[in-house]
Structures are given as C-alpha cells and as structure tokens.
Amino acid sequence: MLTIDSLKAFGADTDDALARCMGNEAFYFKLIGKVLDDKNFEVLEQAIHAKDLDKAFEAAHSLKGVLGNLSLTPVYDPVNEMTELLRSRNDVDYTTYLKAIADKKAELTKLLE
C-alpha cells in the first residue's frame, strides 16, 4: 500500500509532486502506478543493447520529464544523468545506469504492493 510516508522514505520529494497534483494524493498515487507501466523503460533498455542511441535518448528524455514531474528523485537521478550523456550520443557503458534505474523502479513497485 503506497503512502506519502513510504514515498518520502523512498526518497521522493512528495511536497513538490503533490503541489503539481493540486494536493490530490490519490491522483498522485495513480500517476505513479502509470509511470511504472511506462513502456519507455523497456525501450530505453532495448535501445541501449541495440546501440540505438537516438532512440535511447528519446526514451530517456521522455522518462526524465515524467519522473521529474512526479519528483521520484531516486529513479529520476540516474535517468537524468543518462539523458545528458545520450544527448551528445556518448557511447559509454550504460549498464550501471540501467541497473540503478531497474533497482529503484523495483523498490518503488514494491511500495505499491
């Protein structure tokens, strides 16, 4: 069961995000549920494996916007760093980033149960 406290403990800036949700907690939680289903997580991973940096950038960029709006800082931070690297199409090893993202996403998913 997702709560503001558990999100805070996770590291989310819930005050900021709730303001964007006009103070509506249920709405905030609903949107968090939606972001976990965002297909861009999958697209990003596959694009990195396929070395399609353009596609990877687009997916990372989109995720960055959504995660930022929901203030899910622990997931946002690695996505943000990836986005900046991908913007200049840096061919670096992104696996640590992908792992950090996957870990934090899993942690968040757990909060929902």
């Binding site: 964007r20 949700c21 006009m22 509506n24 709405f27 949107l31 939606k34 972001v35 965002d38 989109s62 916007g65 959504v66 709006n69 929901l70």
Partner: peptide, 13 residues
Amino acid sequence: DDEFVNREMLENI
C-alpha cells in the same frame, strides 16, 4: 504530449 502522466497532470491543474 506523448506522456500520459504529463497530460493528466496538466489537465488536472
């Protein structure tokens, strides 16, 4: 906006 969350958030505002 192609992101559902962004659209919903703005609409709500």
